[in-house]
Design a protein around this nucleic acid. Sequence first.
DNA 1: TTGACATACAACCGATCGGTTGTATGATTG
DNA 2: CAATCATACAACCGATCGGTTGTATGTCAA
Lengths: 111, 111
Amino acid sequence: MTEDDEDRADALFHALADRTRRDIMRRVLAGEHSVSTLAGNYDMSFAAVQKHVAVLERAGLLTKRRHGREQLASGDVAAVRSVGSMLTELEQVWRGRIARIDDLIATDQED
Amino acid sequence: MTEDDEDRADALFHALADRTRRDIMRRVLAGEHSVSTLAGNYDMSFAAVQKHVAVLERAGLLTKRRHGREQLASGDVAAVRSVGSMLTELEQVWRGRIARIDDLIATDQED
DNA sequence: TTGACATACAACCGATCGGTTGTATGATTG
DNA sequence: CAATCATACAACCGATCGGTTGTATGTCAA
Protein backbone atom coordinates (compact mmCIF):
# COMPACT_ATOMS: atom_id res chain seq x y z
CA MET A 1 0.00 0.00 0.00
CA THR A 2 2.82 2.46 0.86
CA GLU A 3 4.89 4.28 -1.72
CA ASP A 4 7.94 2.16 -0.82
CA ASP A 5 5.97 -1.03 -1.40
CA GLU A 6 4.99 0.21 -4.84
CA ASP A 7 8.62 1.13 -5.58
CA ARG A 8 9.63 -2.38 -4.60
CA ALA A 9 6.90 -3.95 -6.72
CA ASP A 10 7.98 -1.81 -9.68
CA ALA A 11 11.58 -2.99 -9.25
CA LEU A 12 10.65 -6.66 -8.85
CA PHE A 13 8.30 -6.89 -11.83
CA HIS A 14 10.65 -4.82 -13.97
CA ALA A 15 13.58 -7.06 -13.07
CA LEU A 16 11.60 -10.13 -14.14
CA ALA A 17 10.31 -8.53 -17.35
CA ASP A 18 13.42 -9.53 -19.33
CA ARG A 19 14.09 -13.06 -20.56
CA THR A 20 17.84 -12.89 -19.98
CA ARG A 21 17.28 -11.86 -16.36
CA ARG A 22 14.68 -14.61 -15.86
CA ASP A 23 17.20 -17.11 -17.23
CA ILE A 24 19.87 -15.79 -14.87
CA MET A 25 17.38 -16.25 -12.00
CA ARG A 26 16.86 -19.92 -12.97
CA ARG A 27 20.59 -20.49 -12.90
CA VAL A 28 21.29 -18.72 -9.60
CA LEU A 29 18.27 -20.35 -7.92
CA ALA A 30 19.73 -23.73 -8.91
CA GLY A 31 23.11 -22.84 -7.41
CA GLU A 32 25.85 -20.25 -7.03
CA HIS A 33 27.47 -18.90 -10.20
CA SER A 34 30.14 -16.28 -10.75
CA VAL A 35 29.26 -13.32 -12.96
CA SER A 36 31.66 -14.43 -15.71
CA THR A 37 30.32 -18.00 -15.64
CA LEU A 38 26.84 -16.56 -16.12
CA ALA A 39 28.09 -14.25 -18.87
CA GLY A 40 29.47 -17.26 -20.75
CA ASN A 41 25.92 -18.47 -21.40
CA TYR A 42 24.76 -15.46 -23.38
CA ASP A 43 25.54 -13.93 -26.72
CA MET A 44 26.29 -10.49 -25.33
CA SER A 45 29.16 -8.69 -23.62
CA PHE A 46 30.28 -9.37 -20.07
CA ALA A 47 29.29 -5.80 -19.15
CA ALA A 48 25.72 -6.35 -20.37
CA VAL A 49 25.34 -9.47 -18.21
CA GLN A 50 26.96 -7.72 -15.26
CA LYS A 51 24.31 -4.98 -15.55
CA HIS A 52 21.53 -7.58 -15.64
CA VAL A 53 22.94 -9.12 -12.46
CA ALA A 54 23.07 -5.65 -10.88
CA VAL A 55 19.38 -5.05 -11.73
CA LEU A 56 18.44 -8.37 -10.10
CA GLU A 57 20.59 -7.57 -7.07
CA ARG A 58 19.08 -4.08 -6.63
CA ALA A 59 15.60 -5.66 -6.76
CA GLY A 60 16.68 -8.09 -4.02
CA LEU A 61 16.20 -11.17 -6.22
CA LEU A 62 19.79 -12.32 -5.79
CA THR A 63 22.72 -11.69 -3.47
CA LYS A 64 26.44 -11.81 -4.11
CA ARG A 65 29.24 -13.28 -2.02
CA ARG A 66 32.95 -12.73 -2.58
CA HIS A 67 35.02 -15.84 -3.22
CA GLY A 68 38.57 -14.92 -4.12
CA ARG A 69 38.45 -12.71 -7.15
CA GLU A 70 35.05 -14.02 -8.11
CA GLN A 71 31.64 -12.74 -7.08
CA LEU A 72 29.25 -15.66 -6.56
CA ALA A 73 25.57 -14.88 -7.20
CA SER A 74 22.80 -16.80 -5.45
CA GLY A 75 19.05 -16.50 -6.03
CA ASP A 76 16.80 -15.41 -3.15
CA VAL A 77 13.70 -17.59 -3.15
CA ALA A 78 12.00 -15.41 -0.51
CA ALA A 79 12.03 -12.46 -2.93
CA VAL A 80 10.49 -14.65 -5.64
CA ARG A 81 7.80 -15.69 -3.16
CA SER A 82 7.12 -12.05 -2.27
CA VAL A 83 6.26 -11.40 -5.92
CA GLY A 84 3.96 -14.41 -5.79
CA SER A 85 2.18 -13.04 -2.76
CA MET A 86 1.53 -9.75 -4.57
CA LEU A 87 -0.27 -11.77 -7.24
CA THR A 88 -2.17 -13.66 -4.56
CA GLU A 89 -3.36 -10.31 -3.20
CA LEU A 90 -4.68 -9.44 -6.65
CA GLU A 91 -6.44 -12.78 -6.77
CA GLN A 92 -8.08 -12.02 -3.42
CA VAL A 93 -9.58 -8.87 -4.92
CA TRP A 94 -11.09 -11.05 -7.62
CA ARG A 95 -12.46 -13.50 -5.02
CA GLY A 96 -14.21 -10.53 -3.41
CA ARG A 97 -15.94 -9.81 -6.71
CA ILE A 98 -17.19 -13.38 -6.97
CA ALA A 99 -18.40 -13.31 -3.38
CA ARG A 100 -20.39 -10.14 -4.09
CA ILE A 101 -21.94 -11.72 -7.18
CA ASP A 102 -22.90 -14.81 -5.16
CA ASP A 103 -24.49 -12.58 -2.51
CA LEU A 104 -26.46 -10.78 -5.19
CA ILE A 105 -27.81 -14.06 -6.54
CA ALA A 106 -28.67 -15.29 -3.06
CA THR A 107 -30.50 -12.04 -2.22
CA ASP A 108 -32.48 -12.22 -5.48
CA GLN A 109 -33.64 -15.71 -4.67
CA GLU A 110 -34.79 -15.14 -1.10
CA ASP A 111 -38.52 -14.26 -1.35
CA MET B 1 10.43 -22.76 -22.77
CA THR B 2 9.44 -21.66 -26.32
CA GLU B 3 10.11 -18.22 -27.75
CA ASP B 4 6.39 -17.41 -27.65
CA ASP B 5 6.23 -18.31 -23.96
CA GLU B 6 9.10 -15.92 -23.28
CA ASP B 7 7.37 -13.20 -25.31
CA ARG B 8 4.26 -13.72 -23.23
CA ALA B 9 6.22 -13.65 -19.97
CA ASP B 10 7.93 -10.44 -21.07
CA ALA B 11 4.54 -8.85 -21.81
CA LEU B 12 2.95 -10.01 -18.54
CA PHE B 13 5.76 -8.90 -16.23
CA HIS B 14 6.18 -5.66 -18.14
CA ALA B 15 2.46 -4.92 -17.88
CA LEU B 16 2.59 -5.41 -14.11
CA ALA B 17 5.78 -3.36 -13.66
CA ASP B 18 3.86 -0.08 -13.44
CA ARG B 19 1.92 1.02 -10.35
CA THR B 20 -0.89 2.68 -12.33
CA ARG B 21 -1.46 -0.54 -14.28
CA ARG B 22 -1.39 -2.63 -11.09
CA ASP B 23 -3.99 -0.29 -9.61
CA ILE B 24 -6.15 -0.63 -12.73
CA MET B 25 -5.87 -4.42 -12.36
CA ARG B 26 -7.15 -4.22 -8.76
CA ARG B 27 -10.15 -2.22 -9.93
CA VAL B 28 -11.04 -4.41 -12.91
CA LEU B 29 -10.55 -7.61 -10.92
CA ALA B 30 -13.06 -6.26 -8.38
CA GLY B 31 -15.61 -5.51 -11.12
CA GLU B 32 -16.23 -4.07 -14.58
CA HIS B 33 -15.27 -0.44 -15.20
CA SER B 34 -15.42 1.73 -18.30
CA VAL B 35 -12.19 3.29 -19.53
CA SER B 36 -13.35 6.81 -18.62
CA THR B 37 -14.44 5.70 -15.13
CA LEU B 38 -10.96 4.27 -14.63
CA ALA B 39 -9.36 7.43 -16.03
CA GLY B 40 -11.25 9.50 -13.42
CA ASN B 41 -9.15 7.92 -10.67
CA TYR B 42 -5.78 9.14 -11.89
CA ASP B 43 -4.04 12.48 -12.23
CA MET B 44 -3.22 12.02 -15.90
CA SER B 45 -4.95 12.39 -19.26
CA PHE B 46 -7.63 10.05 -20.53
CA ALA B 47 -5.31 9.04 -23.38
CA ALA B 48 -2.58 7.97 -20.92
CA VAL B 49 -5.01 5.72 -19.02
CA GLN B 50 -6.43 4.35 -22.27
CA LYS B 51 -2.87 3.35 -23.27
CA HIS B 52 -2.34 1.63 -19.89
CA VAL B 53 -5.57 -0.33 -20.43
CA ALA B 54 -4.37 -1.25 -23.94
CA VAL B 55 -1.07 -2.58 -22.52
CA LEU B 56 -2.97 -4.74 -20.00
CA GLU B 57 -5.33 -5.95 -22.73
CA ARG B 58 -2.48 -6.87 -25.10
CA ALA B 59 -0.87 -8.85 -22.26
CA GLY B 60 -4.18 -10.69 -21.77
CA LEU B 61 -4.63 -9.42 -18.21
CA LEU B 62 -8.00 -7.83 -18.96
CA THR B 63 -10.70 -8.07 -21.61
CA LYS B 64 -13.14 -5.46 -22.87
CA ARG B 65 -16.81 -5.74 -23.66
CA ARG B 66 -18.88 -3.15 -25.51
CA HIS B 67 -21.84 -1.71 -23.59
CA GLY B 68 -23.46 1.06 -25.57
CA ARG B 69 -20.82 3.67 -26.18
CA GLU B 70 -18.76 2.48 -23.26
CA GLN B 71 -16.06 -0.17 -23.24
CA LEU B 72 -16.23 -2.17 -20.00
CA ALA B 73 -12.92 -3.66 -18.82
CA SER B 74 -12.79 -6.80 -16.70
CA GLY B 75 -9.73 -8.42 -15.11
CA ASP B 76 -8.76 -11.96 -16.14
CA VAL B 77 -7.81 -13.88 -13.01
CA ALA B 78 -6.49 -16.83 -15.07
CA ALA B 79 -3.82 -14.58 -16.59
CA VAL B 80 -2.81 -13.41 -13.11
CA ARG B 81 -2.55 -17.05 -12.05
CA SER B 82 -0.41 -17.86 -15.09
CA VAL B 83 2.13 -15.30 -13.87
CA GLY B 84 2.00 -16.93 -10.46
CA SER B 85 2.74 -20.32 -11.97
CA MET B 86 5.82 -18.92 -13.71
CA LEU B 87 7.10 -17.92 -10.28
CA THR B 88 6.24 -21.35 -8.91
CA GLU B 89 8.38 -22.87 -11.67
CA LEU B 90 11.27 -20.70 -10.53
CA GLU B 91 10.68 -21.87 -6.98
CA GLN B 92 10.84 -25.48 -8.16
CA VAL B 93 14.32 -24.83 -9.54
CA TRP B 94 15.30 -23.64 -6.08
CA ARG B 95 13.77 -26.76 -4.45
CA GLY B 96 15.98 -28.84 -6.74
CA ARG B 97 19.02 -27.04 -5.40
CA ILE B 98 18.02 -27.78 -1.81
CA ALA B 99 17.39 -31.43 -2.66
CA ARG B 100 20.88 -31.72 -4.17
CA ILE B 101 22.42 -30.16 -1.06
CA ASP B 102 20.50 -32.61 1.13
CA ASP B 103 21.74 -35.51 -1.00
CA LEU B 104 25.28 -34.27 -0.65
CA ILE B 105 25.00 -34.17 3.14
CA ALA B 106 23.47 -37.67 3.21
CA THR B 107 26.22 -39.07 0.98
CA ASP B 108 28.91 -37.49 3.17
CA GLN B 109 27.46 -39.12 6.24
CA GLU B 110 27.07 -42.65 4.93
CA ASP B 111 30.33 -44.43 5.91
C1' DT C 1 56.64 -7.25 -8.99
C1' DT C 2 54.44 -8.13 -13.09
C1' DG C 3 50.78 -9.93 -15.85
C1' DA C 4 46.40 -12.04 -16.38
C1' DC C 5 41.77 -12.48 -14.77
C1' DA C 6 37.12 -10.98 -12.54
C1' DT C 7 34.53 -7.23 -11.64
C1' DA C 8 32.60 -2.55 -11.64
C1' DC C 9 31.35 1.54 -13.74
C1' DA C 10 31.11 5.57 -16.94
C1' DA C 11 29.89 7.29 -21.45
C1' DC C 12 27.51 6.65 -25.35
C1' DC C 13 23.62 5.06 -28.74
C1' DG C 14 19.25 3.54 -30.79
C1' DA C 15 14.80 1.79 -29.11
C1' DT C 16 11.12 1.70 -26.08
C1' DC C 17 8.37 3.87 -22.26
C1' DG C 18 5.10 6.89 -20.12
C1' DG C 19 3.25 10.90 -20.68
C1' DT C 20 1.19 14.90 -23.65
C1' DT C 21 -2.04 17.15 -27.35
C1' DG C 22 -4.73 16.79 -31.29
C1' DT C 23 -7.76 14.41 -34.40
C1' DA C 24 -10.95 10.78 -36.14
C1' DT C 25 -14.69 7.43 -35.44
C1' DG C 26 -19.04 5.46 -33.24
C1' DA C 27 -22.95 5.45 -30.35
C1' DT C 28 -26.42 8.32 -27.75
C1' DT C 29 -29.42 12.02 -27.03
C1' DG C 30 -32.15 16.13 -28.19
C1' DC D 1 -29.79 15.72 -38.40
C1' DA D 2 -26.84 17.98 -34.94
C1' DA D 3 -24.39 17.93 -30.71
C1' DT D 4 -22.14 15.39 -27.33
C1' DC D 5 -19.89 11.69 -25.10
C1' DA D 6 -16.63 7.50 -25.00
C1' DT D 7 -13.04 5.67 -27.27
C1' DA D 8 -9.03 4.96 -30.28
C1' DC D 9 -4.93 6.35 -32.28
C1' DA D 10 -1.12 9.15 -34.32
C1' DA D 11 2.62 12.32 -33.52
C1' DC D 12 5.62 14.15 -30.51
C1' DC D 13 8.87 14.60 -26.23
C1' DG D 14 12.00 13.71 -22.34
C1' DA D 15 13.47 9.68 -19.64
C1' DT D 16 14.72 5.11 -19.13
C1' DC D 17 16.26 0.61 -21.17
C1' DG D 18 19.35 -2.75 -23.08
C1' DG D 19 23.16 -3.02 -25.34
C1' DT D 20 28.12 -1.41 -26.66
C1' DT D 21 33.25 -0.01 -25.73
C1' DG D 22 36.63 1.68 -22.79
C1' DT D 23 38.79 2.27 -18.36
C1' DA D 24 39.82 1.56 -13.41
C1' DT D 25 40.32 -1.47 -9.43
C1' DG D 26 41.21 -5.61 -6.93
C1' DT D 27 42.85 -10.38 -6.60
C1' DC D 28 45.58 -14.30 -7.91
C1' DA D 29 49.70 -16.70 -9.82
C1' DA D 30 54.45 -16.84 -11.73
